[in-house]
Amino acid sequence: MSTPRIAVIIGTTRPTRFGDKPAAWIKDKIEADGRMSVDILDLAEYDLPFFDEMASNKWMPSKDPKALKWQEDLAKYDGYVFIVAEYNHSISGALKNALDQAFVEWGKKPAAVVGYGGTGAARAVEHLRGIAVELRMVNVASAVHIGGGEFMKVHPLGGNADAKVSDIDDVLAPSAKALIDELYWWADLLKGARAADQAKAA
């Protein structure tokens, strides 16, 4: 069976966002592990409209070309790593909208999370896990939380605009390894299960 494909999804779109840094870091980690291929999907590049379809594509096809492109790209992957900032104790509006713009494509695939912020986006991650269940994803329990003093070491708010997440790798590496190991287990398992389902339906 082919190597599982993973999409790292940057969950914010603001010009001043921090999310591209942890996205690049976890992408490098997955590539170094070697068991999965990985790409970054940047919500800022999709310019998704607010969800205004007649219904979810669980029930009928979407019509907006931008939503269709998003769905087509998501369908290529066997699992996802969401880069999550905490906006007022939850995920960003941009990420919630992107999640709502698909249904079929998320199903029976693992969802892992790298969260960042004062509390490592813990509350936003918990909200995302509930959404993932509704979208028929499998939550990867192991997560990376970049928070507290370690967050300030690599964020511009701490006066470290040029810092990289790799600068605190010694602290994050164990969590990253646990995330990648569990993500691979689920991605490989579910990739085979989906293929078996498709074969039965053919």
Rank of each mutant, 00 (worst) to 15 (best):
S2A: 10
S2Q: 14
A7G: 04
G11S: 06
T13A: 01
R14M: 11
R14N: 14
T16P: 00
P22A: 12
A23N: 12
D28R: 13
D28T: 12
A32L: 15
A32F: 07
F50V: 07
D52R: 13
E53I: 06
N57Y: 02
K58Q: 12
W59N: 13
W59T: 13
P61W: 09
K63I: 07
L68R: 11
Q71Y: 01
V81P: 05
F82N: 01
A85M: 09
N88F: 01
I91T: 12
S92I: 02
G93H: 09
L95K: 03
K96W: 07
N97R: 08
N97L: 11
D100P: 04
Q101S: 12
A102M: 08
F103L: 01
W106G: 06
V113S: 06
V114C: 02
T119V: 12
G120I: 07
G120P: 11
A124P: 04
H127I: 05
L128P: 05
A132Q: 03
A132G: 15
M137I: 06
V138T: 15
N139R: 08
N139P: 07
N139F: 03
S142K: 13
V144A: 07
V144Q: 03
H145W: 02
G147T: 04
G149E: 14
F151N: 12
H155I: 03
P156Y: 08
P156M: 08
P156C: 10
A161G: 13
D162G: 02
D162V: 03
A163L: 10
A163V: 04
V165R: 09
D167S: 11
L172T: 10
A176T: 13
A176M: 05
K177A: 14
A178H: 08
E182W: 00
Y184D: 10
Y184Q: 01
W185L: 14
A187W: 00
A187T: 02
L190R: 03
K191H: 09
G192P: 00
A195D: 15
A196H: 01
Q198M: 12
A199P: 00
K200M: 11
